[in-house]
């Protein structure tokens, strides 16, 4: 691999949760991703940082094919999701995604937000789905909001509901696309707290974020992207504390 993983704390696992090879993504004449090699091992928390427009969100969205990759290979738990024979809907139930804009369904209650996909995609019964939903609401500290509508919640609460919604599908991994960027500063802590708890339970996580504190504290590995390539990666102390590459240094000097 082009970028050796230095000092990763997780034990090596046979099949990585996510493995991306030579991924390219082009919009017209605009090269967003220029040959990305990237992986997330099972149980690992990988934080992807970088300036806006560096392609980090596009990379995340390619992992469950919300974006069609132009070329390259994307394996999720050893299954090639760029293969047209792959059952994408089935794979997607195993990948939880949390978006910057929450994207809760505004016409449904919190509980219905959590049970909809369980029932239609996982074919769970009404009672079982509601039970799992309530358990996950409790986990994010919003058990009493089950019957509220999204518009009645604060941004931080909405994002925690979105996390609970993704967790209700019992995913093998969680992808976070700048989950706190649309939040008022005082609400960021609650969401990061839930994410920290998930990490401590051993959830496989890919987190695109501008929260350097979170990356340093929770991340097993930090990946710095710029201009559609992975510039530097390694344990947080090295990448954030002693960046080797000039672009990483210049980025960190602006955000830290």
């Amino acid at each position: 691999m082009a970028h050796p993983v230095t000092g990763s704390t997780t034990a090596p696992v046979a099949v990585p949760a996510i493995e991306v090879r030579e991924l390219c993504k082009t919009y017209g004449s605009n090269d967003v991703l220029k040959g990305i090699d990237f992986h997330v091992d099972q149980g690992e928390v990988v934080c992807v940082i970088g300036p806006s427009g560096s392609g980090k969100s596009t990379l995340l969205r390619c992992v469950n094919r919300l974006e069609e990759p132009t070329s390259g290979v994307i394996m999720v738990e050893g299954i090639d999701i760029t293969d047209s024979e792959t059952d994408l809907d089935a794979i997607r139930t195993r990948i939880g995604i949390v978006f910057q804009q929450f994207n809760l369904f505004p016409h449904l209650t919190v509980l219905q937000n959590l049970t909809l996909a369980q029932r239609r995609a996982k074919k769970r019964g009404k009672r079982e789905a509601a039970e799992i939903a309530r358990r996950n609401l409790e986990k994010v500290g919003l058990a009493e909001k089950a019957d509220a509508f999204p518009a009645q919640l604060s941004g931080g609460q909405q994002q925690r509901v979105a996390i609970a919604r993704a967790l209700s599908m019992d995913p093998d991994m969680m992808l976070f696309d700048e989950p706190t960027s649309a939040l008022d500063p005082e609400l960021v802590g609650d969401v990061l707290g839930v994410m920290k708890q998930l990490a401590s339970e051993g959830m496989t996580m890919m987190v695109v974020t501008h929260e350097m504190g979170f990356a340093r504290e929770v991340g097993d590995r930090v990946v710095f992207m710029d201009g559609g390539v992975v510039v530097e990666q390694g344990v947080p102390e090295d990448v954030l504390g002693d960046p080797q590459h000039e672009r990483t240094q210049s980025f960190l000097s602006k955000v830290l």
Binding site: N64, L66, D89, A90, R92, T93, I95, I97, F99, Q101, N103, L104, F105, L116, A117, R120, A121, K122, A162, R165, A166, M169
Partner: peptide, 22 residues
Amino acid sequence: PKGQTEAARSLGLNPLWTMITV
């Protein structure tokens, strides 16, 4: 909003159920 479809599809809902329920 496009994010609604993306959220539904990323939860594993197929295009038909996404259209009907979301």
